[in-house]
Computed example of a mutant assay.
Amino acid sequence: MENLAYNSNLFFVALMFLILVVLFSTFKILLEYQRGVIFMLGRFYKVKGPGLIIVIPFIQQMVRVDLRTVVMDVPTQDVISRDNVSVKVNAVIYFRVIDAQKAIINVEDFLQATSQLAQTTLRSVLGQHELDEMLANRDMLNTDIQSILDTRTDGWGIKVSNVEIKHVDLNETMVRAIARQAEAERTRRAKVIHASGEMEASAKLVEAAKTLAIEPNAILLRYLQTLTDIAGEKNSTILFPLPMELLKGVMGDGKTEKAIKPKQPKQPKQPKQKE
């Protein structure tokens, strides 16, 4: 009797354990950002979740899929640009699963597949551009890479929302070459600006000369103003040129010529010859 009671108790414990296992396998709780892909006897049945779902043990199997945005760091890639410059580039991509069925059925590991595709696409796109475009037009390159990845991963039920190139590393030789190029560009701009300033100054001087030529006394006032500026510096000796045109403007042309012109001596009269 004791053995029979012991065996019945053991059977009851095993039965309760089996029931708990079945219940635990049957009822699943999926979070709001999770979906469950259900397979019945190896064939796709449906996508369930979120919340409490029922999975029939030994007949149905469930695969959990996270629908949150995944931030994936693309490893550093060696890229040769179109102008034959070797650079090291790394990036980061943002994507999420929008179709759990495709993400599980159409690709073995969508995370690994997306990572490898991002690496090859990064090398392919950047290899078609020159170094200056990589450094100056990152937004355009990010858009191109994002559109290519989004198109190719559409069959996997994945939406690539953004791609950002983080670093473009150059060797020291190329860094020095870029520095020399930037210095030469700054020098060229300085020379162009200086030449433009000289051209504008010459045009203004021509206009000023025309204005002073209208009234001769204006140049005298300008000379006096210049003399006042020089005298303010307390120099011991001042050599100030005074052109003759200035005297003509002050004294008048007729008076000046009359004062400077000498008198001609009178010629003696010759006697008349007798016939």
Rank of each mutant, 00 (worst) to 15 (best):
G127E: 07
G127Q: 02
H129Y: 15
H129K: 15
H129S: 10
H129L: 12
E130S: 15
E130M: 12
L131E: 04
A136E: 02
N137F: 14
N137Q: 12
N137S: 15
D139P: 03
M140V: 13
N142H: 05
T143L: 12
T143D: 10
T143R: 14
I145F: 00
Q146R: 11
S147W: 15
S147G: 12
S147L: 15
I148S: 01
I148L: 03
I148G: 01
L149F: 02
L149M: 09
D150L: 11
T151L: 06
R152W: 01
G155S: 05
W156C: 01
W156D: 00
G157P: 05
I158N: 00
S161T: 07
S161I: 10
N162I: 09
I165Y: 04
I165L: 15
K166F: 10
K166L: 13
V168W: 00
V168F: 00
D169S: 09
D169Y: 06
D169N: 07
L170T: 00
N171F: 01
N171K: 02
N171S: 03
E172W: 08
E172Q: 12
E172A: 11
M174Y: 15
V175G: 05
V175H: 05
R176N: 13
R176D: 14
A177N: 09
A177V: 10
A177I: 12
A177C: 05
I178Y: 09
I178T: 09
A179G: 03
R180C: 06
Q181I: 08
E183C: 10
A184Q: 13
A184R: 14
E185R: 14
R186H: 08
R186N: 04
T187C: 05
T187P: 01
A190W: 07
K191N: 12
I193L: 13
S196Y: 11
G197D: 12
G197Q: 14
G197I: 11
G197T: 12
M199I: 03
E200Y: 09
A201E: 00
S202N: 08
K204D: 09
L205K: 11
L205Y: 03
V206P: 08
A208K: 04
K210V: 11
K210Q: 11
T211V: 08
A213H: 06
I214Y: 07
P216I: 04
P216V: 07
N217V: 11
A218N: 02
I219K: 04
L220M: 15
L221C: 03
L221K: 02
Y223I: 03
Y223V: 09
Y223M: 07
D229Q: 13
D229A: 10
G232F: 13
G232P: 09
K234S: 00
N235E: 04
S236L: 14
S236C: 12
L239W: 01
P241K: 07
P243A: 12
M244H: 09
L246S: 01
L246C: 01
L247V: 15
L247N: 12
K248I: 09
V250S: 08
V250K: 04
V250G: 08
G252S: 03
G252A: 02
D253G: 05
G254D: 12
K255M: 03
K255I: 07
K255F: 03
T256Y: 15
T256E: 11
T256W: 15
T256L: 15
E257G: 06
E257N: 08
K258S: 10
A259P: 02
